[in-house]
């Protein structure tokens, strides 16, 4: 599903070079639920951005669902994001001026579907997160947990094979966070591959596979029944 080999990401200014990711190699199989942890500035977001085709990498190889993404131009990357990837953001990133229906509709519009094709998909997605009765509400009329559910519905509405979650519970209280996690687990159990960046060690421990990043490299990996050092993980 996701295959990164020796990915490097270097941010350059006139004076400084910052290595956000160094020889980062990771393979995620279809149906996995992987959590990514690490301290601030370790490269989690850079990994997420590269995995989600939100930014390019300096060197290495990345295949998403069998497609080598380095060869894709901006247009094709956008189309691939739309078709293959669902995003869940820490701050929900809902459009404040759009109601829930229109918010969930956003990725479908970029897929070129007709209104009659989009409507049942949107209703089903909102129904799956328990917000079918609030389609005409604005995000500001919802609680944080409900807003994140809308964001999850938006991420799922196009039936992506791959869900990228960036601290999805970071702005939620523990009870609400628990509900969101349960929802994500249900989604994963239905077959969607999930990679989730989190600071929450407790959530990470519960996941079947956790990758710990330090200084742009995989420092530690738990899961798949084994724990390995950074050297073996990278290799």
């Amino acid at each position: 599903m996701l295959e990164m080999i020796d990915i490097c990401k270097v941010y350059r200014t006139d004076l400084v070079q910052t290595h956000a990711l160094r020889d980062f190699s990771l393979s995620v199989q279809e149906g996995e639920f992987v959590t990514i942890t690490g301290p601030s500035g370790c490269g989690k977001t850079t990994f997420l951005n590269i995995a989600g085709l939100l930014e390019t990498y300096t060197s290495g190889s990345y295949q998403l669902d069998g497609v080598e993404v380095s060869q894709l131009n901006d247009f094709k990357r956008a189309r691939l994001r739309n078709e293959k990837i669902g995003f869940i953001f820490q701050s929900f990133n809902l459009m404040p001026d759009l109601n829930l229906f229109d918010n969930v509709d956003v990725p479908l519009r970029y897929r070129g579907l007709k209104a009659s094709e989009r409507k049942p998909l949107i209703e089903k997605a909102l129904e799956s997160v328990g917000l079918a009765g609030r389609m005409k509400h604005l995000p500001s009329q919802l609680s944080g947990g409900q807003q994140q559910r809308v964001a999850i519905a938006r991420a799922l509405v196009g039936s992506p094979r791959f869900l990228l979650a960036d601290e999805p519970t970071g702005n939620l209280d523990s009870n609400t966070a628990r509900g969101v996690m349960e929802l994500l687990q249900e989604i994963n159990e239905l077959g969607t591959t999930i990679v989730m960046v989190t600071h929450d060690q407790e959530l990470a421990r519960e996941s079947r596979r956790n990758i710990h990043i330090l200084d742009g490299q995989i420092h530690e990996e738990n899961g798949r029944g084994e724990m390995s050092s950074s050297a073996s993980a990278v290799a």
């Binding site: 994001r81 078709e83 990133n93 459009m95 956003v106």
Partner: peptide, 16 residues
């Protein structure tokens, strides 16, 4: 700006 970035993340192309 962030909304635009989000739209791009969700699949909007530059022309869109």
């Amino acid at each position: 700006k962030k909304q635009i970035g989000t739209r791009r993340a969700l699949g909007a192309t530059r022309p869109e």
